[in-house]
């Protein structure tokens, strides 16, 4: 099951050139672009591992593509995303986020039912990959 999060995730995977153009858009807007990776695909997992520092002073997006490829060398089997942070007052938040790398096999999510008090049932989802410990989730 293809995980969909952030921008462009219903489209086919982004090529390096697509990434460059999108990142350049963010840089031209003055946003700090950074690369992050994780092996926990839960939609509520907002804090991914940082790959290096956010790039505040690179005028050209080739540097972003370079870092994405460096990250792929080490974490090619995980999710990698590029995010753009807008530091301007009133925003101070992520303006763009796109998945640029995903594991070869994405097992998807299962539905978990929990019996509560009375006859209430709580529903949640859990990725099948999360049954394995960190680092062993995507072979």
């Amino acid at each position: 099951m293809k995980m969909t999060q952030g921008q462009f995730s219903f489209l086919p995977d982004l090529s390096d050139d697509d990434i460059r153009v999108q990142a350049q858009y963010a840089i031209d807007k003055g946003w700090a672009v950074s690369v992050e990776h994780t092996d926990d695909p839960h939609p509520r997992n907002t804090y991914w591992e940082m790959w290096g520092h956010p790039m505040f002073d690179n005028p050209d997006a080739a540097a972003v593509v370079f870092e994405v490829n460096e990250c792929r060398k080490l974490y090619g089997g995980q999710y990698i995303r590029v995010i753009a942070f807008d530091a301007s007052p009133g925003w101070e938040s992520i303006r763009m986020a796109m998945i640029v790398n995903r594991p070869a096999v994405e097992p998807g999510f299962r539905l978990v039912r929990q019996e509560g008090e009375g006859r209430s049932v709580r529903y949640t989802i859990e990725s099948y990959a999360m049954r394995e410990p960190e680092g062993a989730r995507y072979p």
Binding site: G52, M55, D57, N58, P59, D60, A61, A62, A63, F66, E67
Partner: peptide, 14 residues
């Protein structure tokens, strides 16, 4: 290595 790469990234496109 990180220092050199940082500089190279800054120079990319130029």
């Amino acid at each position: 290595a990180p220092k050199t790469k940082e500089v190279l990234k800054k120079a990319m496109g130029g």
